[in-house]
Design a protein around this nucleic acid. Structure first.
Lengths: 246, 246
DNA sequence: TTTACAAATCTACCATACCAGTTTTTACTA
DNA sequence: TAGTAAAAACTGGTATGGTAGATTTGTAAA
């Protein structure tokens, strides 16, 4: 892994008076590295190693690790090692279940509370997505995709729900980085269909369009798992219902 | 706040070879204290203060703070202070929205995948709730309520979803501790209605029963806010949809 | 009495040293 | 050579001291 290149730019700056702490910046650096697969699933590293590479002490690195562990980006094994969590197919499908349930509920709300401004905003985003496809700007396209879904949530007064969706989405985003062929034109069509239903305030149609749109990941993950088995965790056995132990 | 009383029992034990670290135990102690309102919303404290009270160094306390901040139990103000987050009505209603959307989706799944064992398990839980009411064991009743919902999720293979619901629920649980009158008999009736629909595999009825059951919090929170205004944050202004900034 | 400013006293953040386990290496024995 | 045990080189967890910024306090001037 090569995080040294970003050292001088991002971390070893002068001790600014600004807000972000060193731990914040270490977290952001590692978060990005994991998301973009610069740090691939299964990679092992230590507090001391990262600290040395980033030119800081172990302490802020350690605190970044704690935060990364909470979002299941890394797994801390005390006295042993810390490693990047492998992609769990069960976790990804679980994230999709959660995302679908939430976005379905959100878009139903949006059909009631939506403003004309929201429609304009969404159409603007899709238009920019078209341009992004023309110039083959994959990164921009993905950012606009996020913006599309976030705007719907915020437009119906459910901005806080998007925060949660975004966290769940992180597991899927690593998959997204793996899949080079994302079939952008179809995505744009699906977005347009969602806008249409939203404009007509047709909740049932909007919800169906959204669910269809989100079902994409299912067909992708099985393929990617075969293409990159080393990035995926072994399939878990699903537990049955436990007796409660209060 | 009086955490010293639990010091000898929970923290100053012999250095076991077992798993939980000191930071884990500090986290659990503070988590419980905040949930049960022993540490009321708005209370200020410092790393050094807690460390002294619990008889540990500042480091594990600090790490516990980081984890508590991530679940929005405390707010860390650098160089200033750390305080218990006040209850935000917007956050509670947001949590309910999320919980309702997820549990509605889960129980629809459960109507398809449910086993006879799940029905038996749920009926057993409700029966124990009746007994808990008889002997006025409020704490036990609440634990069984959690067990009821968790069992439904795990019984339909969505145990991971419960993990998320549980996190969201934490904000509501502080409200639950505030409300002394919880109207347990009605809760039991609602649970029974959910079981009935689940037994009949009637997804629409089960979902409706679940949504009705979860709507309870809305009527509670407004009253509590008036009764305990010091525990609640000032109402936030809801933002409109932003233009994306990719 | 009120205001202004400085010193004392807080805070959380960071660096460092040490500890107790784990893993790997090394070296000696059978 | 193979096996085993000791030792060296890791790991993350904890304790502690120092630092810079924020708050409070206290004192002096208007």
């Amino acid at each position: 892994m090569d995080l040294l290149s970003t050292k001088e730019e991002k971390l070893a700056e002068k001790p600014e008076i600004g807000d972000p702490t060193i731990a914040d910046r270490v977290f952001a650096t590692l978060h990005s590295a994991i998301l973009t697969l610069q740090m691939p699933p299964g990679a092992k590293f230590s507090e001391a190693e990262i600290a040395k590479q980033l030119g800081v002490s172990r302490q802020p690195v350690r605190e970044a690790f704690i935060r990364l562990a909470q979002i299941e980006f890394v797994r801390i094994q005390p006295k042993r090692a810390t490693e990047v969590c492998k992609i769990s197919e069960a976790a990804v499908l679980n994230a999709r279940f959660i995302r679908e349930a939430l976005e379905a509920a959100v878009i139903r709300d949006a059909c009631v509370h939506r403003s004309e401004m929201l429609i304009d905003c969404l159409e603007d985003i899709v238009e920019r997505q078209r341009k992004a496809v023309d110039v083959n700007e994959r990164e921009l396209f993905h950012d606009l995709d996020d913006a599309f879904h976030r705007s719907i949530a915020e437009g119906s007064g459910r901005g806080l729900v998007w925060t949660l969706i975004n966290e769940q989405k992180a597991q899927m985003d690593r998959v997204r980085y793996l899949s080079l062929a994302f079939n952008e034109p179809v995505v744009i069509k699906e977005h347009a269909a969602i806008i249409d239903a939203l404009r007509d305030r047709d909740a049932a149609r909007a919800e169906a369009a959204m669910r269809h749109h989100l079902s994409r990941i299912n067909s992708i993950i099985a393929v990617l798992r075969q293409q990159h088995p080393q990035y995926f965790a072994a399939p878990e056995t699903v537990k049955g219902p436990d007796k409660p132990t209060p």
